[in-house]
Structure formats: structure tokens, C-alpha cells
Design a protein around this nucleic acid. Sequence first.
DNA 1: CTAGACATGAGGTACGTCCCTCATTTACCG
DNA 2: CGGTAAATGAGGGACGTACCTCATGTCTAG
Lengths: 339, 339
Amino acid sequence: MRPTVHDIAKVAGVSLATVDRVLNARPGVREGTISRVNAAIDTLGYVRDVAAANLARQRDFNFVFVLPDRDTAFIAALRDEIAAVQSHARTDRMTIRRVDVSPHDPQAMVAALHLLADEGVDGVAVMAPETPQTRDAVRHLRAAGAQVVTLVSDIQASDRNHFVGINNLAAGSTAGVLVGRFLGARPGKVLVIAGSMLNRDHAERRLGFDRVMQADFPHLDVLPTLEGRDDAAHIADVLPEALARGDISAIYSIGAGNRGLVRVLKETDAPRIVVVAHELTPTSRAALEDRIFDAVITQDTGHMIRSAARVLRAYAERREIIASQERIRIDIFLRENLP
Amino acid sequence: MRPTVHDIAKVAGVSLATVDRVLNARPGVREGTISRVNAAIDTLGYVRDVAAANLARQRDFNFVFVLPDRDTAFIAALRDEIAAVQSHARTDRMTIRRVDVSPHDPQAMVAALHLLADEGVDGVAVMAPETPQTRDAVRHLRAAGAQVVTLVSDIQASDRNHFVGINNLAAGSTAGVLVGRFLGARPGKVLVIAGSMLNRDHAERRLGFDRVMQADFPHLDVLPTLEGRDDAAHIADVLPEALARGDISAIYSIGAGNRGLVRVLKETDAPRIVVVAHELTPTSRAALEDRIFDAVITQDTGHMIRSAARVLRAYAERREIIASQERIRIDIFLRENLP
DNA sequence: CTAGACATGAGGTACGTCCCTCATTTACCG
DNA sequence: CGGTAAATGAGGGACGTACCTCATGTCTAG
């Protein structure tokens, strides 16, 4: 049988109340007594029964996901996964909400976070650009007692507890290696399409990509970024022109809007182009299956959302997190290993 | 506030005892009453508080991992992850044991499983070859009320609840594409090293590999399997000879013993060979970093062990599993996206 | 020496569910 | 219509922890 608080009390020679004070870091216990209790805890190998604790505490955790209000496939996937977690969360005494914030109004994000802080939520997972304002908003949340996890794109030097996402520099490098090795020895031009270089993750991916290309594939000519605005229609507009300038042997698609890219590639009669893109979505999956894309680099949205929820919960309960479980991998998918 | 059993009783107009009988499928309730209670459950959106339930039930789940007693890096990794889960399991009212079974004695595995069945464990995760005997042993476990999950290598047509592992045919195909595309257009010979073709997962990988090579890279010449017995020393013995026969431009290492492969490759003065191997271990990771290996195809051991534990728990508690969370991916790691 | 602060003990209630007992009502059968 | 079995009600103790109150003991400053 697992030891209980009663056993600790007996072994330490104190009353239940004192054990409770020590366990929950309540004031009014002498140093010496504290260590006596802790010694008893160690010898017994006591671990608090979290289920019973939460039951007694009548604790219902209140977590909120704050996402930009865009309609890319990636955001849609995140929303779906949040919905999935929501339904299972109730079993586990937590309530999860989602707040969508306009990506165009920088003030909106800060206002939303402040609102949540005042509301007294237990934790927030936020996907937001890194600005001095968002940084302060995160600090404010933390000061209000909320746990904060940054999602997809980190907000450094804020007080966030944890970042859920990938190293985008490494992701860009990975894309570079795939493009370089899939092309082989023949020289050629590489077109890079990104949403916007103001976007931190896009800029980092580009940087990682360029580094690898310069170091390992100097025979390839990487063209300046084509800004696709993460918008399929816009990409479909401007891409044909870029392709017409000729000799493009590979495309690296950093951001969203792959539907536009696929449409153009399907219509072009140019020779086979190596394509590496980001995020596994219905579009990119179909493109892999049709051999229009050669590889997709992605982060598992389901894993990210579940990880964010787990981490918020762990911090709220002051439990340790399992680092390896919460590490988001840079997944590479080819046609053959699609999940 | 979440609805409780009391609320159900009120809404359904029955007593607490009846609600309890319905909830726990105890006999002695009329059909009509059952549906009245269920209707109340639906309208209230009641979900059982699993924590409270387990607390009351004084339930402590007893799960066992049964692994072959080999000392490959892969098995070692599994053991480590089991140890990690063990320590966190206590928090969650479960006890996890590990049983190591000789891989050489086919009877030993069956005996071990029968023992566990008689012992009355709540669930077993088993990594065992697929034989009529193991199949029967699994059936016996299930009949004894235990949940069973097969690990790494499936035992089909047994009664197992779930399989935790990857599709090895697809893994082999993935390896094939990587080898083929990394080599480019130039012809050459491809050496395949496996543990033993009697091993189902190895055979499947080989099959997937061959299919892709034939279909997509007919200019490459795939040599017959070199049996490495999953043993580094043996591989180091026989590999130099195979290489000396000349013109090997790629190696696909299906099984264990990569330490031997790395040792030989480090000493050889042959031109750069493309190497794709399985399982991310300290050896293969170092080989990637040293550019001796080009890609490693792997299944996340941590994910697998945690998934097995979660699935056993879910079945034991009769809860639903989240399919996407339990799907084990075929991970591709290059030097650039190492975790 | 004593007031007051601090440390500790003793005991209780609550959380939501499970599971038990015993009494009572309802339904059905002959 | 009585008798019997099945269905239901009423109530309570238990699980392990949190948190509350009140009483008592101990120390220290003035």
C-alpha cells in the first residue's frame, strides 16, 4: 500500500495538521519540524495522490489558448486539436477555452492577454508575435498568477514557463539539406517563398536554409525571397512570373499558401521541380501523394496542443514535466512515411 | 459546476443508488429506468470524475512490460523509457513492472505470459515474435481479464487490444526513397544488412525497400541481404569483405549492430557511401553528426512506451483512446533535425 | 513575570464516487 | 388475491487530501 499523510505523521511524530502545513507550504512550522517531516516523506517514499488532492481542493483548471484569427490550414489544424483536447479535458477537471485574436491589430493581442490576467485564468497558451508589448503582457499574466506557454513562435525574455514548438533555424537547415541532396550534383536556381520576413519563424527558417546552402551546396543559386503573404491566391498570382524567368530547379516554401503553389505547379509544363514545404495539411499531404511535393517538414499539431495543455497543467499543479515527452520534433514526411 | 451523480438522481427522479447501478452496469434496474437515467446523463452532460472514481475504488493498476532480454541499444532505450514511466506511474495509481525473457527460448515467452495471466495483472505490453504459441498466450491473457498491447512487432489475429509500433513495410520504403534520392542518377550497388530474415519486422522492411528500389530506382543494383545477426562484432567481421567486392555506393542497415558498421566505415578508404540506418541510438546519432550516416529512420521509444502505458490504462478504465496521440510515426532524422 | 506571538495538536467537514446493507415498493405469477 | 422476486430508496462508510477552527503548549521581548 502507498504511504499516506497519516503514515508521515506517525513516522515524523507530528500531527496530521503539521504534515499538511509542510506539504502545502503553509506558514507556522519550525525549520526543525519541517525537516523531520521531509525526512519521513523520504524514508516512506511518499508521493502525494494528485487525484485525491485535486478532488479535495475542488480544483478545476482554467486554461485558454490564444491564437491568431487567420484561416490557414495550420491554424485550422491547431483549432481542431484544441477541440479534441477540450472534449477530453472535462474528464480531467479542466476547462479549456480558445480565444481568437485579430493578427492585424497589434493592440488586440495585448488587450486579450490583459483581460485573461484580470479574469484570473490558471494558464494561457499563446501564439503571438514577439514584440515588447506582448512580452509585457506575458509578464503581467505571470504576475497575476497564471502559467504561460508560448506556442509555435517563442516570446523570449518574457517570463513564460515554457515554449512549445520547434527550432526554426534547424527546420530551415533541414529543408536545405533535403533540397540540396534531392537535387544532386547538377547546378540550378532555388526559389524561396515565404509569408513575410517580419515573421520571426519564417526569417529563422530562411536563415537556417541559407546557411546550409552556402556551406554544403555552393553550386546552387538561392534566389531572393518571394513574399507570398501566406496567401494562396497571391502566390498563384506572382509565382508563374518567377518561374518564367527560368531555370528554377527547386522551391522551398517556408510559410502558408501551399494551395496556390500546388495549383501553379500542376499547370506548369516546366521540368520536374524539387519542392520542400512546411506543415502537413490536406493540401501538402495530397501534393506529396501526387509527387508534386518531395518532402514536407512539419510539427505535429496534435502533439503541440496536447503538450501545451499538459505543461500548463503540470506547472499549475507544481509537478515536474517530462522533458522528452514535451519536445516537439521537426518531422520530415515523404510520400512513403505519411502517417 | 460539473454535474454529479446527485444531479443525475434529481433530474432522473431516482435515488443515488439507482444512478450508481446504472453507471456501473450493476444488475437490478429496469430497462425504462436505465434509459431515464441515461437521458438525464445526456441532458446534464455528465462525465464521471475518473479521479474520484479511482480514489473510491482504491484501484491501483498493475501493468507489465515483457521484453526480450537482448542488449541492443534499442532495447536499452526501451528499458530506460520504462524506468522513466515507472517513476511517474506512482503518481497516477499504477504500478509498472518489467519482465525480461530470453529471446532464444521460445517456450520462455509463453511461460512468462501464462504466469502473468494467472497472477491477474491488469495489462501487459509485450514485444514478442509472432508464433502460434504467442498468439495463444495472448488469447489466454485476454481471457484472464488482462488488457494486452503488442509492442514494436505485432501479433496479429490474437486478441490484443492494440498495437504500438510502426508499419515496417512503409519504413523500408522510406529508407528506399532516401537511398535512391540521396544517390541521385548515378548507378551503383546497394548493400543491405539485416539481423535475420526470420525476424518479421526486418523482413517487412526489406520488402518495402525492395519494392521502392524496383519501382523508382531501377538503375540501382540491390545486393542480397548480408545477415549481421544484430551483432556489432559479427558485422565488423564480415562487412569489410563485402565492401572489398567493390562498387558499393549505399548501405541500408535494417537492424541492430550499427556500432560495427560505423567502425568499419570509419576505417575504410572507400569513396563516400550513402548510409541509411534504423533506430536513433547514441551510436547512430554520433554517426549522423559525423556524417557517416546520412539518415536514420526511427520510432520514438519514449513515445512508444508512454503510449503503451496510456493505452493499457485507457482500456483498463474503459475509456476511449485518442487515436492520433497513439499513432507512432516513422521518424526521419538527418544531422540537421536531430532532437 | 507576563502578554503576545508562534508552533503544534486534535478533530472535523468536504470533495465525488464506489459499494455495502437493509427496508420498502412494485410487478408479476399462479 | 396472496406470495414472491425484482426494482428501488435511504443511508452511510470509505478512499486520500485540503482546509478550517479551536485549544494548548512554548518561547521571547519588555
